[in-house]
Amino acid sequence: MATLKKEAVMQPVRAVQIGRSPLARILLWVAVLMAVIWVLYPFVWAVITSFKTQREALEPTIVPFLQFQPSAENWSAELGLGARETTLALGNSIAISIGATVLATVLGTLTGYALARFRYGIGNRNIVSWVLSQRFLPPVATLIPFFLVLQRLQMIDTVPGLILVNTTFTLPFAILIMRDFFADFPDEIEEAALVDGANPLQIFLRVALPLATPAITAAAIICFAFAWNEYLFASVIAPKDAKPYTFLVASTSTVRGVHFGYLATRMLIAITLPVVLSLFVQRYIVRGLSLGAVKG
């Protein structure tokens, strides 16, 4: 059944047919090509810049070997053996993102399952709206109370402090993705297990959970990407020992002056992981980012 469902979603998308005229076709392809260049251009430019020395970075040259001699100096400065600061920050980023992802995915799967399978007096749609409405809140509004509370708990500049923050921000995505998955998924197998005398917890653990693996993976990836990208709270809550990579990147220009090649290298390290991971969750992006308003 799971495969049937998947095929129904993955079938080739129906689309408007292009006019027969070759001119229309060419124009369309030119437009598509321009769109792709427009999106990729800054990435490509950053990659080129990251292989330039400071002097070369001040020249608008593009072609390596012909126009400038590529050098891996920036990359080795950032990722080489002596780069303790980088290793530490990347380690923190990974610990924070994984911690938040695990917590948000576990909580999100439980709550998402609850909202898809059970009925609550308040009205399920009201609970879902309430959960998702958090994404509308300006983060600066909760920044000060978070700072004061974590200060009292002596959790400033700790990895658990940032795990707590990022779990809170990513939880609505996890709940939404899991609720949508279970709501779209036929509950006949679960009903059958109920008739066989299984209790709700057994049904959840042995029947529903194994079937939900793809959705859980997607929820985890999206949570991971958002936690990885978080900067605002990190800058306030973890300025030293628990500093994640985004915060290290943000302090670049003040440390070394504006060194373009080095900056480009750090920028690329910061964005690569989430951008690559996003390629695996295409089906969930539309729903996740539109907070459930549009089915992708």
Binding site: N229, V249, V258, M267
Partner: peptide
């Protein structure tokens, strides 16, 4: 194409500022 076009969405905004500084 759709996958390529959605790539910017997942780039950390703090890093994009530096991209802006360069561009």
């Amino acid at each position: 194409f759709r996958s390529i076009l959605t790539m910017p969405l997942f780039a950390a905004p703090i890093a994009l500022g530096f991209m802006g500084l360069i561009l």
